[in-house]
Nucleic acid binder design. Structure first.
Length: 565
RNA sequence: UGGGAAGUCGUCCAACGGUAGGACACAUGACUCUGGAUCAUGGAAUCGGGGUUCGAAUCCCUGCUUCCCAGCCA
């Protein structure tokens, strides 16, 4: 299977130029460099598809590298989840699984080299002092009093930092660049800091850890990366990336920045997602409302649909917010073609077919997928007592409501025409308890021999054989299109959608669903795509997640009617 | 008020000096045993102002708006 070519974008333009000029000997080598401090989300998927996709398109390679230089936040659990998610998305790093922490020794040697070259020094200023000395965006900084200490002294101090002789925060290693540089990142940035914390991989071996800026460029260099693709906020770091590599005279990949993905009605900040998890506002990183890959997976999204989405949204340098309906479109598109149809009633309304014999029961043939005849047919039982959707009946139908109403005839899919003859209500509350209908035996299978038409076809489930299940309906996690746009004095959680989850407990499914396996997907006709929850579903008590609704013109009409009232 | 970057249909992305195009969304119609799917049709954009050019989204000047940077986070 050949993957279609990535749409044109500015990164491909750059690579094309590099190929023409033979900048890297015709090589393309990228990497996906997550920090294992959280779960991957759909924004990472964009980066993964880009990096692995580019490598594939140019017959190159893409590494998976954990950017693990901060022992405070990183954990093995995250490493495992990230590997799972990348694999699930459909990408393969083969034998190229790397860790920045693998390079600690080498990185330290580079640091020593820089000191020896007079391009780095150990600074005894406190964190606050360093901040003061840095100056501001508009004013230059001033040089640290330790800036010009001898190379020998810095070397000695660095050695002793490494040996654990100093407290956290007592000293750092800094690059010696230019305290008056208009880019504040170039004002003698920190290269190493002391952290007396065990690292999830190197344990207690190190008590000094290299910073991102020092680590990232050199890791890229060590791995022979050609195009180091990152997000826009690192544009300011590029001069430093280049400076370090140039001073050390090592292989020099090209850093290219693109705009990270923002999706409407959700957030992409790992810090904030973690906050939702920790405060129990969602059930976990894999809550089906989360934009995480594990959340989307549990929700019923497929890897292919996410890859298609990433292709569709393109790559550019302009900050933007992609409407989440594009994501929904991508999953509908796939599931429409691949998913078996099935009948399920979410909010049951009992219907008695009064002229259908008490003990009679028959099986009717239903098509599994009209998009794919090879998926065949199945039998669904029909009997005197059925359930239909509460929404499919209106005692006083508004205009354009074509479904069941008193005196009106509709088709029960694959079954019969039925006509509503009576509405049974609770005498006290007025609540509709059940409907009495008659059926026309001549319409078996769903067609009337006399050619008469109905305006609506409805799904239904035979009461006797029905399988009861729980169904979870999801809506957007945040109410605002730009979920990060918060009112003065409030935080992002004030934008949470209080109705993002609705749990329905007495849903009635057709019996063919009885043995549905966790993770399997179905279209509940007229309702949407659903998948069996992989965490909470059991054979005795099935739990379904709604992945996405079907397009629903009636919903639009309904809202319009409501507005006109 | 320093430095870096970005502004194209409602949204996202193309067009690389030569007819502004695609996807999603929207609207209308056809078809339909899912108000699904499918098909057809339509509306819809170059941040403003100058300039160069036969010709500018693209090149130049200028203004405006938005985003990023003052972690020993990444």
């Amino acid at each position: 299977m050949s993957t279609p070519k990535m749409k044109p974008n500015f990164i491909k333009d750059i690579i094309d130029d590099d190929m023409k000029t033979d900048k890297y000997g015709g090589r393309v080598h990228t990497r996906f460099p997550p920090e294992p401090n959280g779960y991957l989300h759909i924004g990472h998927a964009k980066s993964i598809c880009l990096n692995f996709g580019l490598a594939k398109e140019y017959n190159g390679l893409c590494n998976l590298r954990f950017d693990d230089t901060n022992p405070e936040t990183e954990e093995m659990e995250y490493v495992e989840s990230i590997k799972d998610d990348v694999r699930w998305l459909g990408f393969d790093w083969e034998d190229r699984l790397y860790h920045a922490s693998d390079y600690f020794e080498q990185l330290y040697e580079y640091a020593v080299q820089l000191v020896k070259k007079g391009k780095a020094y150990v600074c005894d200023l406190s964190m606050d002092q360093i901040r003061e000395y840095r100056g501001t965006l508009t004013e230059p900084g001033k040089e640290s009093p330790y800036r010009n200490r001898s190379i020998e002294e810095s070397l000695d101090l660095l050695e002793r930092m490494k040996a654990g002789e100093f407290e956290e925060g007592a000293r750092v290693l800094r690059a010696k660049i230019d305290m008056a540089h208009p880019n504040v990142l170039m004002r003698d940035p920190t290269l190493y800091r002391i952290r007396k914390k065990d690292h999830y991989r190197t344990g207690g071996e190190w008590c000094i850890y290299p910073t991102y800026d020092f680590t990232h460029c050199l890791s890229d260099s060590i791995e022979g990366i050609t195009h180091s693709i990152c997000t826009l906020e690192f544009e300011n770091n590029r001069p430093l990336y280049d400076w370090i590599l140039d001073e050390l005279g090592v292989h020099h990949p090209q850093q290219i920045e693109f705009a990270r993905l923002n999706l409407s009605h959700t957030i992409m900040s790992k810090r904030r997602l973690l906050e939702l998890v920790e405060e129990g506002l969602v059930s976990g990183w894999d809550d089906p409302r989360m934009p995480t890959l594990s959340g989307l997976r549990r929700r019923g999204y497929t890897p292919e649909s996410i890859r298609n989405f990433c292709d569709e949204i393109g790559v550019a340098k302009a900050n933007s917010i992609v409407d989440i309906v594009m994501l929904e479109n991508s999953i509908r598109e796939e599931l429409n073609k691949t998913t078996p149809r099935v009948m399920a009633v979410l909010r049951p309304l009992k219907v008695v077919i009064i002229n259908y014999p008490e003990d009679k029961e028959e099986e009717l043939e239903a098509v599994n997928n009209p998009e794919d005849p090879s998926m065949g047919t199945r039998k669904v039982p029909f009997s005197r007592v059925l359930y239909i959707e509460q929404d499919d009946f209106r005692e006083e139908p508004p205009k354009k409501f074509f479904r069941l109403a008193p005196g009106r005839e509709v088709r029960l899919r694959y079954a019969y025409f039925v006509k509503c003859v009576d509405v049974i209500k609770d005498e006290k509350t007025g609540e509709i308890l059940e409907l009495h209908c008659t059926y026309d035996p001549a319409t078996r299978g769903g067609d009337a021999p006399d050619g008469r038409k109905v305006k609506s076809t409805m799904h239904w489930v035979s009461a006797k054989e029905a399988v009861e299940a729980e169904v979870r309906l999801y809506d957007y996690l945040f109410t605002k299109r730009d979920a990060s746009e918060v009112e003065e004095g409030k935080d992002f959680k004030s934008n949470l959608n209080p109705n993002s989850l609705a749990t329905l407990t007495s849903c009635m499914l057709e019996p063919s669903l009885k043995d549905a396996k966790p993770g399997s997907r179905f279209q509940f006709e007229r309702l949407g795509y659903f998948c069996v929850d992989t965490v909470d579903s059991t054979p005795d008590k099935l739990v379904f997640n709604r992945t996405v609704t079907l397009r629903d013109p009636w919903e639009k009409i309904r809202k319009q009617i409501e507005r006109e009232k």
